[in-house]
C-alpha cells in the first residue's frame, strides 16, 4: 500500500466529463422517455391532466422522503455498507403519520398535528445522527431505529387504522394550484430549496466533500460529524413530512405502511444517479426519479399488468440503473 498505488476515489477525470457528456450519460433519459412513450401510446388515459395530477400526488411522498435520503447519501458517501444510508426513513414516515393522525383525532388543529408528527420524526433523526457521529455504522444504527420507530407506531396506533377528517387534510389532499396538486408544488419547493442548499452553498459543497472523501475533508479542516448529524436530522424531518402527506392522501394512518414505502424511497434516491452525468446521488434527480417511479406504477396498472409484476419491474429497474452506472464508472476509469 505505497502512496503511489493509492489512487483516486473512483472519480472520473473532471475535464472530460465536463466538456462532452458521453453517450452513456443519456441512456438514462432515453430509457425513461421510451418507457413513458410506451405508456402514452399504450393507454389513452396516461397523458390526461387528471392522471398526471394523480402521478404527481403519488410521487410527492416518495420524492420528499427520497430527497431526505439523498442528503444522507450525499453527506455519508454512496458506499452503502459503510457510508450513508437511512433505513429508518420509511418507518419514521409511518410513525409521523400515526402521531399526526392521533393528534388530529384528539382535536388538535391540522397544522399543529403535522408539526407534532414532524417533531417526533426529527427526534428519531437526532438519535440516528448522534449514533452515527459516535461512530456506529449508519446501516446498523438506522436498522435499530427502524425497529424502534415501527414498534412505536404499533404501540401508538394499537395496530388499528386511524382515520383523519377535517378541512386541513382534505385541503392538503385536494387543493390544486395552476392545475398541479398542492403536494406536488410542495415537493418541487422542497426539491428546489434542498438543491439550492446542497448545490450552491458552501454547506452543500462541504457535505459532498465529506461524503466523497472523509479523510481528505478532515485534512482540509472540515468536521464530517457536523454534516452527517445534520443530514440524518433533515432526512428524518423530511420523512416525517412525507408521512403526514401520505396520511392526508389516504385519509388515514395505516399501520405497517412504513416498511412498505422504504424500498421505494431507497429506489428513488439511488435512481437519481442516472440523472447525474457523474453518477452521484442528486436532489433534482431524486425528484425526477420519484415522478418516474410513480409514472411506472401508474402506467403498468393502466396497461393492465398484474400488480405482482410491478415489484419485479422495479427490481429489474434498480438493476438496470446500477448496471449502467457501474458500466459508466468502468469506462471513465
Amino acid at each position: 500500500m505505497s502512496a503511489t498505488l493509492v489512487p483516486v476515489d473512483e472519480a472520473p477525470a473532471p475535464g472530460a466529463s465536463r466538456t462532452k457528456p458521453r453517450l452513456a450519460a443519456w441512456i438514462g433519459y432515453a430509457g425513461i422517455t421510451a418507457v413513458l412513450l410506451l405508456f402514452a401510446f399504450g393507454s389513452p388515459f396516461f397523458l390526461t391532466a387528471s392522471n398526471i395530477a394523480t402521478i404527481l400526488t403519488q410521487a410527492s411522498v416518495f420524492g420528499i422522503a427520497g430527497v431526505g435520503l439523498a442528503i444522507v447519501i450525499i453527506a455519508g458517501g454512496d458506499d452503502v455498507l459503510n457510508g450513508g444510508i437511512d433505513l429508518s426513513t420509511g418507518a419514521v414516515a409511518g410513525l409521523a403519520g400515526t402521531v399526526t393522525a392521533l393528534a388530529a383525532a384528539a382535536g388538535t388543529p391540522g397544522m399543529v398535528a403535522v408539526l407534532y408528527g414532524v417533531l417526533v420524526a426529527t427526534a428519531i433523526g437526532v438519535v440516528n445522527g448522534l449514533s452515527v457521529t459516535l461512530g456506529l455504522r449508519p446501516l446498523l444504527a438506522t436498522l435499530a431505529t427502524m425497529g424502534v420507530a415501527a414498534s412505536l407506531e404499533l404501540v401508538f396506533s394499537q395496530n388499528l387504522k386511524i382515520a383523519v377528517t377535517g378541512g386541513f387534510f382534505e385541503a392538503a389532499r385536494g387543493s390544486v394550484l395552476f392545475g398541479i396538486p398542492l403536494v406536488a408544488w410542495l415537493m418541487a419547493l422542497i426539491g428546489a430549496a434542498v438543491w439550492w442548499v446542497y448545490g450552491k452553498t458552501s454547506w452543500g459543497v462541504n457535505s459532498y466533500a465529506v461524503g466523497q472523501n472523509p479523510t481528505a475533508a478532515q485534512v482540509a479542516g472540515l468536521d464530517p460529524r457536523r454534516y452527517r448529524l445534520a443530514s440524518y436530522v433533515l432526512s428524518s424531518a423530511l420523512a416525517g413530512l412525507a408521512g403526514t402527506l401520505l396520511v392526508a392522501r389516504l385519509s388515514a394512518a395505516v399501520p405497517g405502511i412504513g416498511t412498505q414505502i422504504l424500498l421505494d424511497i431507497i429506489l428513488v434516491a439511488y435512481m437519481s444517479m442516472i440523472f447525474s452525468r457523474r453518477r452521484l446521488v442528486s436532489v433534482v434527480g431524486t425528484v425526477l426519479a420519484a415522478v418516474f417511479v410513480a409514472a411506472l406504477d401508474n402506467g403498468l396498472t393502466l396497461l393492465g399488468v398484474a400488480s405482482q409484476w410491478v415489484g419485479a419491474a422495479k427490481g429489474l429497474l434498480i438493476l438496470l440503473v446500477l448496471a449502467s452506472v457501474t458500466l459508466r464508472g468502468r469506462k471513465n476509469r
Partner: peptide, 10 residues
C-alpha cells in the same frame, strides 16, 4: 462539485 471529486490522496 466536480472539482471536489478531483483526485485526492487519502
Amino acid at each position: 462539485i466536480e472539482t471536489l471529486a478531483a483526485p485526492v490522496e487519502p
